[in-house]
């Protein structure tokens, strides 16, 4: 019925109706603006927080360099706060070694697992494994440290000697902790490779392995490298588990069984009683960590850009 009456509407009615529509639209625009403003405000708050943290760390840490040269701070191995020696060289090397040790075994294993889950395992099993990896990522680091202390440290002590609290124990625990990062991001980037690449390669007579090796992995390259760099960032920043298993002596390790102290460990172990220059030196250590992570993120951004260029494999 309505359809039939519509053409019969008087001019006046038509006008009224269009007015109402316009008003509604007006109100809708107001709401949208409000939402946009709220979102903008949230973003501003988070930028402000980051800015404040950055300023705070630098404000607290930079004054150290009026007393000690940057070179001495970074490269001297003398860390003796009571006598005024603030050289984080040993800790820097400790962080470097334990991170490298962790990467050394977790990158190949993580990448192989990702390839298995994305390409070889039946989809159902791949999915189950993925959930398992997420579980691994959700375990708090103190639990990893505890397991390391109860299982890995005694194991190293009994099989290789020393007291077990060591670079090796740290590298093992850290490696386990960054595996989820490496596996998840690599797997996602492998799964994101267009299926056409795979079919085309197989249709050219390539074997499944050749296809993975020469087409799929190169196509996922930027994502894989991102996963490695992110894992590295996580390893550098990890504190609790490392404090629990590495022994924490501020010495250059002479073997993988020797104890080490990382930069993060140094901060957490001494912040409780540090004051004056000592506290400033710990903040300066935080600055170094901060800059390292920023550097790694810049590398990731670069890679992401290189990835969109469809560059050469």
């Amino acid at each position: 019925m309505e359809l039939i009456t519509k053409p019969g509407l008087s001019n006046c009615e038509k006008k009224n109706r269009s007015l109402i529509v316009a008003e509604n639209r007006h109100r809708r625009v107001d709401v949208e603006k409000l939402i946009e403003k709220t979102l903008l405000l949230s973003a501003a708050v988070f930028v402000l927080i980051i800015a404040l943290i950055t300023i705070f760390i630098f404000a607290k840490g930079l004054p150290l360099f009026s007393k000690i040269g940057l070179g001495d701070f970074l490269f001297s191995n003398q860390w003796n706060p009571t006598k005024g020696f603030f050289g984080i060289g040993t800790m820097f090397i400790g962080t470097l070694l334990v991170t490298m040790g962790a990467m050394l075994w977790s990158v190949p294993i993580g990448l192989s697992s990702a390839i298995f889950m994305a390409e070889i395992a039946p989809p159902r099993i791949g999915k189950t494994l993925g959930q398992l990896v997420n579980l691994l990522a959700g375990i708090p680091s103190v639990v990893y440290g505890f397991v390391g202390l109860i299982v890995i440290v005694p194991f190293i002590r009994e099989s290789f000697g020393g007291n077990g609290m060591s670079l090796l124990a740290g590298a093992i625990i850290l490696g386990i902790m960054i595996l989820p990062t490496i596996i998840n991001i690599s797997r996602d980037s492998l799964l994101a490779v267009p299926n056409d690449y795979k079919s085309s390669s197989l249709a050219l007579g390539a074997t499944h392995f050749q296809t993975i090796r020469y087409v799929i992995v190169p196509a996922a390259r930027s994502g894989i490298i991102t996963s490695v760099v992110l894992g590295m960032g996580r390893a550098i920043g990890e504190t609790m588990a490392v404090v629990m298993v590495t022994g924490n002596s501020a010495m250059i390790p002479t073997s993988i069984l020797a104890p080490i102290r990382t930069m993060t460990s140094n901060i957490v172990l001494e912040m409780g009683y540090a004051s004056g220059d000592h506290q400033t030196a710990l903040f300066a250590t935080g600055m170094v960590l901060f800059l390292l992570i920023v550097g790694l993120n810049l590398i990731i951004n670069r890679l992401a850009k290189a990835g969109t260029d469809d560059g050469r494999g």
Binding site: P194, D196, Y197, S199, S200, S201, A203, L204, G205, A206, T207, Q210, Y214, V215, P218, A219, D310, G311, R312, G313
Partner: peptide
């Protein structure tokens, strides 16, 4: 086989053609 969507590999022109003979 040639597919519906032109699925060139993310490599150079040369490498795309050389891929088959290489493998």
């Amino acid at each position: 086989m040639v597919f519906q969507k032109p699925s060139v590999f993310p490599m150079s022109i040369y490498e795309n053609v050389a891929y088959g003979p290489r493998i």
